[in-house]
Design a protein around this nucleic acid. Sequence first.
RNA 1: GCCGAAGUGGCGGAACGGCAUACGCGGUGGUCUCAAAAACCACUGGAGGUUGCUCCUUGUGGGUUCGAAUCCCACCUUCGGCACCA
Length: 929
Amino acid sequence: MHAPKYQALEIEAKWQSRWEASGLYATQRDETRPKHYALTMLPYSSGDLHIGHWYAMVPSDAKARFMRMNGYNTFFPIGFDAFGLPAENAAIKHGIHPHKWTLANVERMRGQLRQMGAMWAWDREVITCLPEYYVWTQWFFLKLLDMGLAYRKFAPVDFCPKCNTTLAREQVWGDDHHCERCETPVIKRDLNQWCFKITAYAEELLSGLDQIDWPERVKTMQRNWIGRSEGAQVTFKSEEGDPIVVFTTRPDTLWGATFMVLAPEHPLVEKLTTAEQRPVVEAYRAQAAHQNEIERMAVDKEKTGVFTGAMAINPVNGQRIPIWTADYVMMTYGTGAIMAVPAHDDRDMAFAIKFGLEIIPVIKRPDGLAKSAVDIAALREPSVFTAWLDEVHIAYADTGSELQVSLQGDAEINHYITQLRQQMLPGTYACVAGSRFAFVYADATINLDSFANASAILIRCRAANPTAREARTAFELLAGNSFYADVLMDTAMGEMMHSGTFTGTPGETAKSAVIDWLAEQGLGKPEVNYRLRDWLISRQRYWGCPIPIIYCDTCGTVPVPYEDLPVLLPDDAEFMPTGESPLKYHAGFRDTTCPKCGGPAHRETDTMDTFLCSSWYQYAYVSPYHKGETPFDRADAAYWLPVDQYTGGVEHATMHLMYTRFFTKAMRDMGLVDFDEPMLKLFSQGMILGEDNEKMSKSHGNVVNPDNYVSTLGADTVRAFLMFIGPWELGGSWSSTGIEGLNRFINRLWTMMLEPREAPTQVPGDADIAALRRITHKTIRSVTDDIKAFKFNTALAALMQLNNYMIKARESDVFGTPAWDEAQRTMVLLIAPLMPHVAEELWERLGGVYSVHQQNWPVYDPELAADELVTLVVQVNGKVRARLQVSPDITEESARAQALANENVQVFMNGRSPKKVVYVPGKLVSIVV
RNA sequence: GCCGAAGUGGCGGAACGGCAUACGCGGUGGUCUCAAAAACCACUGGAGGUUGCUCCUUGUGGGUUCGAAUCCCACCUUCGGCACCA
């Protein structure tokens, strides 16, 4: 007699239909039990469930099943993100209507999803392209418009020439600014576009991250994306009196502002430019505008810019400074104008050096480092000077032509300058740079602390040295010597200098002290800036949710009244390969009447970014296609929301995960929900790679089709393998031999559970029973902890160990004992979340009542799981020299005595007596001799 | 350049202050077979050896500790994100 063979396909088909027929996964509100809303990111209805979907969904399902067995009323819904360009492309290519194509795909994917054996709540499925769904997407648009969170503007926007549509900023990826979907580099276009004011929630989107249990990497990405900067707004004035407002994060460097830069698109450029400079400025602006049209320039391109001819007045010291325009200043961030402080900003430094603009350091290096290069020919008696340097222990190098001196701290610098001057020949000069910037002459020392001194320095140095005549600024005399390279610029928060009454203000308080003073003087105010941009939602495509807006010649932009929703997509649009949306040419859709005046009007023909559909889908699931005043049933929402555990790919960190947080905050403000964050916990899985460790793609030829494996080895094997690959958050590579190993495991498990055996004739020993129960309870403990922490790979490893143990144990006398039965039942319960079909079949064959998935998760008994003997490691001088099998409650004295008595330990102690003995109960004895 | 993650046998990985290499893959030998596959059993980090043993080994170099894959510092490599954001 042998066990029946493990027939995966038969078992899986049988249980899938039984689960469905018995409504095992139907959703039920149950106020008596704690709820758990588990959610995996909804798939796009591509028509094919690929291995990446399996990799994302299977562990998510396993965790949901685990929660269910732990007493939670668990909701694990599924649906389809069904709008989007692929459907439209299919329509153009194959002449199939996107609606038909999409629904056929959904039907196919439903079948594939069923094969996965997940506990999907099919009764709450949503498909985002159905009017019953998108009526609410449109409703949200109107609500946001009512709240002032939606607006239309004409501006240059990112446009994908392949998809023929605009994109939101966060949908443009990488160095080459390519389309997130098709990887084509984007171009800029000036268009009228609808935007959502996500920036209105910038501060809350940032601070809310502290309240949610999300992976740090995702939170960090969102923080960087939001890009909060604290600083001040400061108003400069042109000589003619035009206010020029700048944003700066370093108001403490204001005294070092030696020029200003306006973005080429800045409106003031036109006004400020002098007649003389107008031709070059106009040429530059034209070129900058043109560069926007074509591909973006290389990242580390040489800085460019032109002088406008105008001068500004630095409000803190009255200094006249030139106003330039350059494309390194962006019109879209801050005010589009900056004060340039080249001494403490590397971009301004590069620009100043290139164009010969003055540089005045105003912050002292916190490290006190200074350097000085002295021309040996400038010294009376070089040997006397070097002897002095040696005597006072000042480090220097002699290059043959100059002494390169390194100095530390004010006292040393001052002492050095005094000595140096005595040694210098008249008509020569030397410099000090770093913690102090000074030019030293036999008869004077001049600090580089103001425009006036800068010119004085330049005049004297030019007179002293013919090569200095080429220098345009005093600073350039330093920049020309590579010895100074690391002390020329410093961006640290240091003590202020050369800054009037603020001189001496320490770095820690400088920023706030200056901001307070600016506000008092009416010169500026505190200001926070964000890198985050508003969400551009218009898409020039057909297959999306229509934007419910009507344009009327008399009434202007008119929202479609709520009662007229939904604005339906016409089904008779013509799909031509023109690259333009068919809606634009569909008279029946486009031409309408104004809801206000009844006159002729036309509809908005752009549709919405599909990320809108997925921004609120988790709310739709609680009561799909809701009919009523709100997008979902309030009682259902109150019970299920918010999502307790979300899982999905990290690629959505700054897109979907940002959008849905924004939606939730807006929904709270419209009174729909009473919480601030949509998903309390998030787990971001890694990516599954091909067998060659490369990203799966058709061009690599390494794409794995899950259906091939599901139809031969069965879904449970595929599930188990995907979870066994490695830590879920790190992703991993497919392995065609690796999956065989998991199939082998299930087969061995099957045989171990079901292979008949005659009852043993001997009574088993107590120790054998205890050992079996010990590993059983230990396994419960580790599998429970591992699944809680999403460590499915180690959970499976623990189950394999139990299986290996039981395979041997079943040959012994413990077979058939209550301990054996306990081990078998436990095994089935523990595998249930991971391999739901095998578990159900084994459960039935063991005589369990339907269904294993409705059983309680086993609880381990710490006493049974406790080790009877532990291995005590004995180290001599940090090296393992012996291992003792001892009872875990051994006394310290006894442990020490046994350790010292060990033969091998004595060999390594070599007759010496222990200096120190470290005892860690249950772990080790460490002897130091 | 900045931020984040990761570097452990032939491979995926485990351990995350206390027995390095759990579990799986692959490999070697064996059982079964006319033979092969499957299945099962044994071995499998490297070097040495008198085989109930030693030395070496967790990207590199330092440090802390009785003890470091694990903690600290510096560096190298790979991957991901951001990048002229004032």
